[in-house]
């Protein structure tokens, strides 16, 4: 069975932001479902850990939420990204890309490059 490690701190929040950014307003289950689809089985267990992260993001002002009707017409809480959230996402994404690029170069490093 594939190891389902805990999500790195901060990454889950970033995934939430990106998901909301691309797909527009979603309820908790929807977000969990998308993240699961994209990241493989990362959120296959402990989907519930998503909710404290959503609360934290909301308190930071990166997302906002309101009650709405779900696909089957039940009451559900919908989350959407705010302008502050956009900015945060951009900044974080840049940071990740830089880190990834640097780490990538290191992993591609071969002994002959230095000879």
């Amino acid at each position: 069975m594939k190891q389902k490690t805990d999500v790195r701190p901060g990454t889950l929040a970033l995934m939430v932001l990106k998901t909301l950014n691309v797909l527009g307003p979603l309820h908790g289950f929807g977000i969990a479902r998308r993240i699961e689809q994209i990241s493989g089985d990362l959120l296959a267990v402990n989907q519930g850990t998503l909710y404290p992260v959503l609360l934290k993001l909301e308190q930071e002002g990166a997302i906002a939420s309101e009650w709405g009707a779900s696909e089957n017409n039940r009451r559900a809480r919908f989350y959407r990204i705010t302008r502050a959230g956009h900015k945060l996402l951009e900044a974080e994404a840049r940071g990740w890309e830089q880190t990834a690029a640097i780490m990538g170069r290191f992993f591609e490093m071969k002994a002959e490059d230095f000879s």
Binding site: G28, F29, R74, A76
Partner: peptide, 9 residues
């Protein structure tokens, strides 16, 4: 409520 909805879905 959110969790109930989540479980239902």
């Amino acid at each position: 409520e959110e969790i109930a909805e989540h479980l239902a879905l």
